[in-house]
Design a protein around this nucleic acid. Structure first.
Length: 896
RNA sequence: GCUGGAAUGGCGGAAUUGGCAGACGCAACGGACUUAAAAUCCGUUGUCCUUAUGGACGUGUGGGUUCAAGUCCCACUUCCAGUACCA
């Protein structure tokens, strides 16, 4: 076979990549005459390690979808950019003195080059970079909008701070009080916060960045502690209800929605006041079960609760102080690991249960958290597991006030006797106080809650409330490589924002990037930049030294893509109205909660302020599954690096010891030596083969192991596609002709059009590829191949293997790119068979397959089936009871 | 513990939503071409019994509904992901 007749991706791939670039094939402009489609990939953090095979998975999926939609006439927005602020570049700067901007630039260039090698149809003129001052100017601008917005709970809407009504009693206290009040309502605020401090990274971390085992997500060390520091925070819980409601309007995987709902964690209940016996006032608790007030036998406040001093009696003082000290020293690791053993201490005082006037002890225990509800609870051990455990530990009384709705008599008896805990429904007992006009005995849970809340409100003892688990979002970091806050702290204690015309506030050049020990960022050393003097008043001030977290830039990048070069606004409103919302957003599930919740929050604020016109940013979300790799472990379960293992007869052995090891599936990692580099695959097989394999591995959302052998298979398929059309001499194959298709071929062609179309639409790329393989198998054996059918096939293949698609399209005699050639349509009539092979079963077991007219009616089918010899043998001597005939499918004869 | 998802040949996976389980691909085996190898092409390949014809079994386990179940219902097992005293 001659050289020119070969499928040679190494020559055609660069050719077409250059063509697309020169002709700006994928450049997109707003065009109101066309229907828009915005398809977005989660933009990557350009790490020094370069691309791994996980990246192209999602990118290829969206690319196929975009190319398909362009052929259907959509105006497709498909951009790419870099989430380029982040710790690694800064740590590299500390080590080598190289400015993070230089490292970042290098990494972005590398990523861009690698991505371009994959033939992805991005509009590169829209490329953005979160570290570009032209970009973060607007990140800073949005921060200012957050600062200048308050949330109107009645309207459930963010509004300009200038519209905030000041209560009369605040107004009466003067300007300081007014300022304080305003500050307390801004969505962005600067205040003391108990924060996680990582001694290794020398920065604060968000609560979410501390993992269950007490380690810091970013660096993996457990050198983390609580500190009290002035920090920027965002009042995301104000938007809790909106963030919850919005989930019902978007097309997202149910699992992701559920994760967000759990994270937001809405609960409804009541706040109830308990009067303290020692006259120290009221203790307010939050409970979701106000109906169990009759069963409250003690109370608990968190160790950090401000009332602790007031309720501690003289003889308990020492014990209480001792306990609080110990609780404060406990790491979160200990708090969670020791969760099963409840600890606490009696405060020495009592409170009065408002429902029956009974005196109950107040305890201090760390199973009650400061940040949730009111930081204090009424304990109902009979109907709350945690309270029950605590009561057993400290021998507190358990009073059952609900007869469990259960058939388990032993359990019921135990609950009634106070020896077990019941949290489900039932009927109340011992729940009446005639003097106060309250009796819920016999009611069920739902009725009880309602009745008691009404009673509490009527008596002025409490109110119904809603609580969210979602906490304020800690929004500052003690880092250099992040967006600076456009904020100046003045010597008189006031604080102002940098004027819009002075944005962006850029990062100063530094000699050293080491953070200060005292919790200050490297910016604390930037003398000239740091110190400012007000030109009007001469007052001295200091710039904010914290920078924004990495989330900031990724919270709104999808908006900037729409109008990336706008210097007067983050984006033009008209342009945004055209492109918004994002129609399809594809990325890893690791961002299911944080990134997606944070950007939704920002988007809603921008929506409320009239800056964008949709309430939700991402209409459809799709999570690609992680790509894993084979790895090896021995009997004990310890992992063996892949390069120390060899295969013999389908079994695996350690090369040094000859010990047999097991093949397992694991994440790709340097230690396991099982990382697959996409560049190697492109070199060996071409980008089209890499793309095809990534899609052919399995469903897009499934976790699946990489197997380079599989790339061979799809590469062979592309070669077969090539040879379908190109002869050994490099010219069109002689078998290409204008001879009409056989019925069989026509059916396969239209089946393929249909399958590929519907599968791409639903992102089922693996099965679309299977069908194209069926097509190639069918036409490979044909002596004559209809030219038009081949053209159609090339169009179907092109979104998957675009370089090969363009090349074959050209060789079939077309001049322009096939990017905008209308997508083929199938004809349903051609899919119908005249005759179908019908399975005939007797009592559900296969008896024979009979050819009959596909249009045969059930009774005709029955007649044919019963007349068949083989069938007759099976039912011989039996009586036919029933015959089920499904047209085009089967006949089942029930005989006894 | 709770929430969400999954389990099908040696492997990755498919199955018009209840209608021939294993499409398509990998690997393996046999053959053709070749001095040879690679590449390519043709064929076989769920397991078991049988020379063949043919038969039995088979979608994590156990039950159920149905003429018919990978698919629906009940109970369980294992794995993956998220979450963790949220009152």
């Amino acid at each position: 076979m001659s050289e020119q007749g070969q499928y040679n991706p190494a020559s055609i791939e660069p050719k077409w990549q250059a063509y697309w670039e020169e002709n700006e094939t994928f450049k997109t402009e707003m065009d109101k005459s066309k229907e828009k489609l915005y398809v977005l990939d989660m933009f990557p953090y350009p790490s020094g390690a370069g691309l791994h095979v996980g990246h192209p998975e999602g990118y290829t999926a969206t690319d196929i979808f975009c190319r398909y939609k362009r052929m259907q006439g959509y105006n497709v927005l498909h951009p790419m950019g870099w989430d380029a602020f982040g710790l690694p570049a800064e740590q590299y700067a500390i080590k080598t003195g190289t400015h993070p901007a230089i490292t970042t630039q290098k990494n972005c260039d590398n990523f861009r080059k690698q991505i371009k090698n994959l033939g992805l149809s991005y509009d590169w003129s829209r490329e953005i970079n979160t570290t570009d001052p032209k970009y973060f100017k607007w990140t800073q601008w949005i921060f200012k909008q957050l600062f200048n917005t308050w949330f109107d709970a009645d309207q459930q809407k963010g509004r300009p701070i200038s519209e905030l009504p000041i209560p009369a009693e605040i107004e009466a206290q003067g300007q300081d009080a007014i300022n304080g009040y305003i500050a307390s309502r801004r969505l962005a605020y600067y205040d003391n916060a108990k924060v996680w401090w990582c001694n290794h990274c020398k920065t604060v971390c968000a609560n979410e960045e501390i993992l269950n085992d007490g380690s810091h997500e970013k660096c993996g060390t457990k050198d983390v502690e609580r500190r009290d520091l002035k920090q920027w925070q965002l009042r995301i819980p104000e938007y809790g209800q909106r963030l919850l409601d919005g989930l019902d309007t978007v097309n997202w995987p149910e699992g992701i929605k559920e994760m967000q709902r759990n994270w937001i964690g809405k609960s409804t209940g009541a706040e109830v006041d308990f009067e303290l016996e020692n006259g120290a006032g009221n203790l307010r608790v939050y409970t979701t079960r106000p109906d169990t007030l009759f069963g409250a036998t003690y109370m608990v406040v968190a160790p950090e609760h401000e009332i602790v001093t007031a309720i501690t009696s003289a003889d308990q003082k020492e014990a209480v102080e001792d306990y609080i000290e110990k609780a404060a020293l406990k790491s979160d690791l200990e708090r969670t690991e020791l969760a099963k053993d409840k600890t606490g201490v009696f405060s020495g005082s009592y409170a009065i249960n408002p429902i029956n006037g009974e005196k109950i002890p107040v305890w201090i225990a760390d199973y009650v958290l400061t940040g949730y509800g009111t930081g204090a609870i009424m304990a109902v051990p009979a109907h709350d597991t945690r309270d029950f455990e605590f009561a057993k530990e400290f021998d507190l009384p358990v009073i059952c006030i609900m007869e469990p709705a259960t058939d388990d008599d032993a359990l019921k008896e135990a609950v009634l006797a106070g020896n077990a805990c019941w949290t489900e429904d039932g009927a109340y007992i011992r729940s009446e106080n005639e003097a106060q006009g309250l009796n819920i005995n016999g009611l069920d849970k739902k009725q009880g809650v309602e009745t008691v809340i009404n009673w509490l409100v009527e008596k002025g003892l409490g109110e119904s409330t809603v609580n969210f688990k979602l906490r304020d979002w800690l929004f500052s970091r003690q880092r250099y490589w992040g967006e600076p806050f456009p904020v100046i702290h003045w010597e008189d204690g006031s604080m102002t924002l940098v004027e819009d015309e002075d944005l962006p506030l850029e990062l100063p050049k530094l000699e050293a990037y080491e953070p200060g020990d005292g919790g200050e960022s490297p910016l604390g050393n930037a003398g000239d930049w740091l110190e400012v003097t007000c030109p009007k008043t001469g007052m001295k001030g200091r710039r904010e030294t914290n920078t924004m977290p990495q989330w900031a830039g990724s919270c709104w990048y999808y908006l900037r893509y729409m109008d990336p070069h706008n210097e007067n606004a983050p984006f033009d409103k008209e342009v945004a109205d055209y492109w918004m919302p994002v129609d399809l957003y594809v990325g890893g599930a690791e961002h299911a909660v944080l990134h997606l919740l944070y950007s939704r929050f920002w988007h809603k604020v921008l929506f409320d302020l009239g800056i964008v016109s949709t309430d939700e940013p991402f209409q459809q979300l799709f999570n690609q599954g992680m790509i894993l790799a084979f790895a090896y472990e021995d009997e004990v379960g310890s992992k063996i690096p892949a390069d120390e293992v060899e295969e013999r007869d389908g079994k695996f052995f350690r090369i040094d010891t000859d010990e047999e090891v097991n093949k397992i599936v694991a994440k790709m990692s340097k230690t396991l030596k099982n990382v697959v580099n996409p560049d190697d695959i492109v070199n060996d097989f071409g980008a089209d083969s890499l793309r095809l394999y990534e899609m052919f591995m399995g469903p897009l959302d499934a976790v699946k192991p990489w197997n380079t052998d599989g790339v061979h298979g799809v590469h062979r398929f592309l070669q077969r596609s090539w040879r379908l059309i190109i002869g050994d001499d490099g010219e069109l194959a002689p078998s290409i002709s204008d001879e009409p298709l056989t019925k069989e071929q026509r059916m396969v062609l239209h089946q393929t059009i249909k399958k590929v179309t519907t599968d791409v639409e639903s992102l089922d790329f693996n099965t679309a590829i299977s069908q194209m393989m069926v097509f190639v198998n069918e036409f490979s054996k044909a002596k004559s191949r209809n030219r038009e059918a081949m053209q159609t096939y090339v169009q179907l293949l092109a979104p998957f293997a675009p370089h090969l698609g363009e090349e074959l399209w050209q060789r079939l005699g077309n001049e322009d790119t096939l990017t905008f050639i209308p997508w083929p349509k199938w004809n349903e009539d051609y899919l119908k068979l005249d005759e179908a092979e019908i399975m005939v079963q007797v009592n559900g077991k296969p008896a024979n397959k009979i050819m009959m007219s596909a249009a045969a009616k059930p009774d005709e089918m029955e007649t044919i089936a019963l007349a068949d010899d083989k069938v007759q043998t099976k039912i011989d001597g039996k009586q036919v009871r029933k015959v089920i005939a499904v047209p085009g499918r089967l006949v089942n004869i029930v005989a006894k």
